[in-house]
Design a protein around this nucleic acid. Structure first.
Lengths: 349, 349
DNA sequence: AAACAGACCGAAAACGTTTTCGGTAAATGT
DNA sequence: ACATTTACCGAAAACGTTTTCGGTCTGTTT
């Protein structure tokens, strides 16, 4: 029932707790035979050290926290998956929290983690967060923090990102290379840096290929939803019947567009090519299947944990924490919603 | 930098740590003025009690663990979401672990949680798990455990389930009511109870409506995947050209079927009605959108935490832990992949 | 004036571990 | 025979909190 302690083992064996502790940790100043006796009894009694007591002494929990805007998302859940997998290798457990895209919640949840004295924190900013004192303070107190995906360069700490701008450039470039002349872009609320970067990537690609930028070809999805994409399609095609390429900043919107176009009897990709962003699970199940940009969530998670681990070690050694930035490469996944481009199928970017 | 402790506060104020501790907890034997002085200083110094020390004394962590087969799943992530939300209300944090459908991993991860002395565990069995000693032992040691979704009645503890059999019955019944005569069922590897129950629900519905059961109408998807559904479609329609209804035991398979049927130019729902199970996010984005059974993951998670909390309280009070079973209702979501049934749109089951 | 009741505070033990610093006994060296 | 090393073990402090049990003052009652 109740857990075995060092004291009990020591009492049974007529030893001191110090000796028992040292025997279990294979100290050199303990007789080999004593060690054996202790270890054998500990095994028989199923002894496991009390984690609280250890933490109290060592100031380490072997627990880290991850705070994401929203867990129920393929992208974030695969990041968490990557973190958990990597953390497991080093004996760390992971507490998961959500900010629900709320600044106040982000502050609250962060405090919860800090108060639990966990070893480190990984977080992706909420879209509403525009002040960063709560995070900067936590770092100042000596807590290792790693930012990923939704980041800001106003916080000095290790970060894992994908280059949304570069990826959006590639997406747009792909549409250009298959011959699209009038390319619309569906963007979102211009708060998160990622959304802005995708917009910029689109613009840069047009410039690079000498296609005039037309602001009226920019549409905005407020809810990042399937329905938004579906509803915007009518408006887009009415205002610009000559659109032959659409780059949506996130897959569900692109899938909504696909459905909208089909209902208007506009052939994809013959008449209009559509490309999304994120490679959601369902994007390969649509008809036609969706060309999109793959963001490897698992890789982001793994690398974020690796950076955190590095900070943890630096802290233990009393070194100053570095602020490395790791960029995870994305790639374009070409499926059936875009016209074929000869001699190429998948371009790493 | 380093955290403030009771001792430091007491030193500054010329009090003992006991007095400071009691002042902060509003004990009645402390002078009101002293309390104020202490509380004010504690606030100014940003004092927060050391969680390790508290846990060491109280034997409580205010942390619980949840072990799921696979986090990157809409169903499981929404369960976890429900758990986290509910746990937050009571000041609990949640450690998330995965068994990856492996029996060995399940054992390993469970041990990790137990060794961390967390307060309680919620788990959904891996498909491979057929022995339950590792869990029963944990319960015997006094750890509160709640099972959800993938459960077994061989473990005596609180559980949260949906009635897969009843839900599958409704799904099949719906096909029957809209006039389907030859109804195929795609099932999976018959290990998890949920899969078996869905199979049984299908059979029971046929019996109830006097439709002869034909074993050759049962097909098996090994990987629960979109591709499986897609690939099985040809075989099904070749062997049984008169099929007019298909009940797939999980949405991605059903969506694969949808695509397969379209490629064979078989009209859905005119010629064949298709129903899935689980209401995955994408099932409403397909063409035609998929009729399916909704499993409310959030509700399952919330209720599982509530049961765990009850166990936690019972343990604290020294009472014997009860083994309540909560059944979460599912409902059929009727979309466009099944023919319409007059005078009914949504049947709660 | 003796006895008593509050009011207020502190000493100390406990939770279980780890690690430093001695200490004892035997073994080795001169 | 004495000094010194080696091998082994234990005492004790420390991590930070909580709570029991007294203890010392006042001030009040007979």
């Amino acid at each position: 029932m109740s857990k075995v302690t060092l004291k009990e083992i020591s009492k049974i064996l007529g030893l001191s707790t110090s000796t028992v502790s040292k025997a279990l940790k294979d100290y050199s100043d303990i007789n080999a035979e004593t060690k054996l006796r202790v270890q054998e009894l500990a095994n028989r009694l199923n002894y496991t050290p009390n984690a609280f007591a250890q933490s109290l002494r060592s100031h380490e929990t072997k627990i880290i926290g991850i705070l994401v805007p929203d867990l129920v998302h393929h992208f974030f859940s695969s990041i968490i998956n990557g973190v958990i997998q990597e953390a497991e290798k080093y004996g760390y457990l992971v507490i998961v929290l959500q900010s629900h895209e709320s600044y106040e919640d982000e502050i609250k949840q962060l405090k919860l983690l800090v108060d639990k004295n966990i070893d480190g924190i990984m977080l992706s900013l909420s879209d509403k967060t525009v002040k960063y004192d709560h995070i900067i303070n936590v770092i100042k107190e000596g807590m290792p923090v790693v930012l990923f995906d939704k980041i800001t360069h106003l916080i000095d700490c290790p970060k894992v990102i994908i280059d949304d701008r570069k990826a959006a450039f590639s997406a747009t470039e792909h549409l250009i290379k298959i011959g699209c002349k009038t390319i619309a872009h569906i963007t979102g609320p211009l708060k998160p840096k990622t959304t802005i970067d995708r917009y910029m990537g689109y613009k840069t690609a047009l410039e690079t290929y000498d296609i005039p930028f037309d602001k009226s070809l920019i549409y905005t999805s407020e809810n990042l939803s399937f329905d938004d994409g579906y509803n915007l399609t009518g408006k887009m095609m009415a205002e610009h019947p000559n659109i032959d390429g659409i780059f949506a900043f996130i897959d569900p919107v692109a899938i909504g567009v696909l459905k909208g176009l089909r209902e208007q009897n506009i052939k994809v990709p013959k008449q209009v090519s559509v490309i999304g962003f994120s490679n959601w699970f369902m994007s390969r199940t649509t008809t036609p299947s969706l060309t999109t940009i793959d963001q490897p969530g698992g890789e982001i998670g793994k690398n974020a944990f690796k950076l955190l681990l590095k900070s943890l070690n630096q802290k233990r050694e009393g070194e100053v924490l570095t602020s490395e930035i790791v960029e995870i490469p994305t790639r374009i996944v070409i499926r059936k919603s875009t016209k074929v481009i000869p001699f190429e199928t998948s371009i790493p970017i």
